Simulated scan of single mutants.
Amino acid sequence: MVRTLPFAALTLAAGMTANALQAEEVNVYSYRQPELIQPLLDGFTKQTGIDVNVAFLNKGLVERLEAEGARSPADVVLTVDISRLAALVDAGVTQPVESEILEKNVPAEFRDPGNQWFGLTTRARIVYASKERVKEGEITTYEDLADPKWKGRICSRSGTHAYNVALFAAGIEHMGEEKAQEWIEGIKANLARKPQGNDRAQVKAIWAGECDISLGNTYYMGKMLSDPEQKEWAEAVRLDFPVFEGGGTHVNVSGVAMTKSAPNRENAQKLMEYLASPEAQKIYATDNFEYPIAPDTQPDELVAGWGTFTADEVNLMDLARLRPDALRIVERVDFDG
Rank of each mutant, 00 (worst) to 15 (best):
N115T: 14
E232G: 12
I184W: 04
P148G: 04
I184S: 03
D147W: 04
V203W: 00
A201T: 09
Q230K: 10
K104Q: 07
S130K: 04
L215Q: 01
Y128Q: 05
A169L: 09
S158W: 02
S214N: 04
E232W: 03
T140L: 07
D112W: 04
K135H: 12
A166C: 05
L145F: 11
W183Y: 11
P113R: 10
P113G: 09
W150F: 15
N190Y: 08
T141G: 07
E100M: 09
E178T: 14
D112V: 09
S214L: 02
E143K: 06
R123F: 13
N198L: 06
G216C: 01
A108M: 08
I101S: 06
I184N: 00
G186N: 14
D144T: 09
Y163I: 01
M175G: 00
T218M: 12
R200Q: 11
V165D: 02
A201H: 07
A162H: 00
R193P: 00
A201K: 10
D227P: 13
N198V: 12
C155V: 09
A189Q: 11
T218S: 14
I213K: 01
H161G: 15
R111Q: 15
E210Y: 04
A146T: 14
A166L: 11
L191N: 07
F110P: 01
V127G: 03
R123N: 08
E185I: 07
R157Q: 15
Q116H: 13
D212M: 08
E143S: 14
E138N: 11
E185T: 15
H161A: 03
S156G: 11
A108P: 00
F110N: 13
V134S: 02
R133A: 10
K135S: 15
L215D: 00
R153C: 00
N164K: 01
Y219D: 06
R200W: 05
A208T: 10
P96M: 07
Q202A: 14
L215I: 12
L215H: 00
E185D: 10
K223D: 13
E103M: 10
F118K: 01
R125F: 05
E210P: 04
A170I: 05
I213H: 01
K151E: 13
P96T: 14
D227A: 08
L225H: 09
E232D: 14
L191F: 11
V97Y: 05
L191S: 06
D227V: 06
K149P: 05
A208C: 08
L225Q: 11
A180R: 02
I139C: 07
K194M: 12
K151T: 14
P113T: 09
V93Q: 02
G159K: 00
